[in-house]
Design a protein around this nucleic acid. Structure first.
Length: 327
DNA sequence: AACCTATCGGCGGAGAAATC
DNA sequence: GATTTCTCCGCCGATAGGTT
């Protein structure tokens, strides 16, 4: 169960607030780098502010989101520019740190031509997500924990699961425990049953009395075909209907469907507010005008997440701790 | 080495909705 | 009414760790 050395040092300094947790979770599992990142290197004219350049270029995304998040823009002379400070020499914008956005959208292919409506929509969502994430790591004081390259294979799911186990163990009361790879036959009520076999649970939460509080399934991304038939569910539902079965995911484009239709008792999202902001941007005709600042995005994201009923990791911890104390 | 199990992630297409 | 765009569904290939 040990955390991979690559990210163990990061989660040792795990923040306790929701945004900080979300930032670390998203960071260590950072989805594949988006080729759209280069589109943030817009060309500014001498005498222009970033806002004026964005207006002229009719950007869907707002450079100010990045500035508010702590990115610094410089023009070709190396002079800092912002929504307030005009450029002296003009030229292409360089962002510091590098803009490295991630792809969370599987409906708009990487090959989509720049300028098309779908391209611009995906771009705006990716910029917003990067800004929200970057502000969170800045405010939490954790460094950039993103893997240097893209993660391939099934390792992202394992990272996410280990992260969740760590978060649970750090946030649950003394004596409680979150474990994964627990054999289902070791759960009272599932022993000596047919069809349980050698199956393992995803994550189980046990309280200080050794009682099973909940079973948690972690899925970095979600698809309808693999979301509904978790092998462990059937015996659990049949023999231990008293145990809540929950899902934690980081799925973006299907977040609404997950919240609405997944078979689990409850679902939680790694970063509900950011999904909310991302959805709001996708739906807006002019997101830059509608949400000029990063604070606007944060507020809108929270509102959308609330309306959709998306819960986050702090909600999961709270719900677990409030489990019944009367047997 | 071959096989098995588990987990993502990209993609194409069906059907609905919006737009012309 | 036709065409384009959007949303959603779920198929299945890629990858890796464990097992025989």
């Amino acid at each position: 169960m040990p955390l991979d050395e690559q990210y163990a040092t990061i989660v040792d300094a795990l923040p306790s607030d929701g945004d900080g947790l979300a930032a670390v979770g998203l960071g260590i599992c950072w989805p594949n780098t988006s080729p759209f990142s280069a589109a943030t290197e817009i060309s500014i004219r001498a005498g222009e502010t970033l806002t004026e350049a964005a207006d002229r270029l009719k950007l869907r995304w707002s450079p100010r989101w990045l500035v508010d998040a702590g990115f610094v823009a410089t023009d070709k002379t190396g002079a800092v520019v912002s929504h307030r400070k005009p450029s002296i020499g003009g030229g292409p914008i360089t962002w510091s740190p590098d803009v490295r956005m991630c792809r969370v959208e599987d409906q708009v292919p990487n090959s989509t031509p720049a300028g098309s409506a779908r391209y611009e929509r995906r771009l705006a969502g990716e910029v917003a997500l990067l800004a929200l994430w970057h502000r969170a790591i800045e405010e939490s004081g954790v460094g950039d924990m993103r893997p240097s390259g893209d993660i391939v294979g099934n390792t992202r799911g394992a990272r996410f699961r280990d992260f969740l186990v760590y978060v649970l163990n750090a946030g649950l009361p003394q004596g409680w425990e979150a474990r994964h790879e627990v054999s289902l036959t070791s759960i009272r009520g599932l022993h000596m049953r047919r069809g349980v076999g050698g199956r393992k649970s995803d994550i189980v939460v046990i309280d200080d009395g050794g009682r099973l509080v909940a079973v948690i399934s972690s899925k970095w991304t979600w698809r309808s075909d693999r979301g509904t038939e978790a092998a462990q569910m059937v015996p659990l539902r049949q023999f231990r209907p008293d145990i809540p079965y929950t899902l934690v995911t980081a799925e973006f484009s299907r977040a609404k469907v997950v919240a609405r239709e997944s078979v689990e008792d409850r679902t939680y999202h790694l970063c509900p507010d950011w999904v909310g902001a991302w959805l709001a941007i996708g739906q807006s005709d002019e997101p830059r005008a509608e949400f000029p600042t990063l604070d606007d995005l944060v507020a809108q994201g929270r509102s959308v997440a609330d309306n959709l009923g998306l819960a986050g990791l702090p909600d999961l911890l709270r719900d677990l701790k409030e489990s019944g104390t009367i047997l």
